[in-house]
């Protein structure tokens, strides 16, 4: 059967809504906007459901400061940072650990904050893009390197990439270009500015060596 015949045969017959939905469900591709939000499980008792959706006051260590905040049990760190703590530098590009725009550093290790539950990082040191600059306004060596290389285009991915570069330069004082690319491979740039991003990363490592 040719590629042309297939859709002709299947689309002219017409479907009832019921068979259509059955088909869609079978393919696992039903469209529901709430699939993208954490929600209370259907299996919980009424009292459990209430408890699981009540806010809870927690204290987080963000950029060296202690921040108290009401969070929901299902709340992600990205949402807490952006909507509760005013730290909108951390971006949401996909909300599903595909793009790295939301990358933050937790206890020295990069994490996708869209995929970290806030309640799990209560006793951890969280660093976001806003925490890199010195209080006197001096840019972090990585930030300075990006400025000097004219890195990034639209820069929506920049905060995530920069956090990955910070982790890279913390861990490797003298990375090769290939090692830098590996370290940044969890971040996506749709402008395709990878060449300039790698130039920035190599310069960042050089600046970091100088400041040590």
């Amino acid at each position: 059967m040719s590629g042309v015949e297939t859709p002709v045969a299947s689309t002219t017959s017409g479907h009832s809504r019921r068979t259509f939905i059955k088909g869609v469900v079978a393919t696992g591709a039903a469209v529901s906007s709430s699939n993208y939000l954490f929600r209370a499980s259907e299996g919980l008792s009424a009292s459990e459901r209430v408890r699981s959706t009540l806010p809870q006051l927690v204290t987080l260590s963000v950029n060296g400061q202690s921040r108290s905040v009401d969070i929901l049990p299902q709340e992600t760190l990205a949402m807490t940072l952006r909507y509760k703590l005013g730290l909108t530098g951390t971006k949401l590009g996909c909300d599903r650990a595909e793009c790295g725009a939301c990358t933050v550093i937790i206890d020295g290790v990069t994490h996708y904050s869209c995929s970290v539950l806030t309640k799990t990082v209560r006793d951890r040191a969280i660093t976001t893009i806003e925490g890199l600059e010195s209080p006197d306004g001096t840019l972090h060596p990585v930030q300075q390197a990006v400025v000097d290389e004219g890195g990034f285009q639209c820069a929506f991915c920049a905060p995530g990439f920069i956090m990955s570069m910070v982790a890279l330069t913390n861990d490797h004082s003298n990375p090769t270009r290939e090692e830098a690319a590996q370290a940044l491979s969890g971040n996506l740039c749709r402008c395709g500015d990878y060449n300039k991003i790698l130039n920035s990363a190599m310069r960042a490592a050089e600046y970091a060596r100088r400041t040590v």
Binding site: L139, Q143, G151, A155, A158
Partner: peptide
């Protein structure tokens, strides 16, 4: 080559994209 005037805002997270406004 120049450094564009918005770059520091972009590397510090101060650049506001649509979803960053409240």
């Amino acid at each position: 080559d120049i450094s564009p005037p918005d770059l520091v805002a972009k590397v510090t997270g101060r650049a506001k994209y649509a979803e960053d406004f409240r």
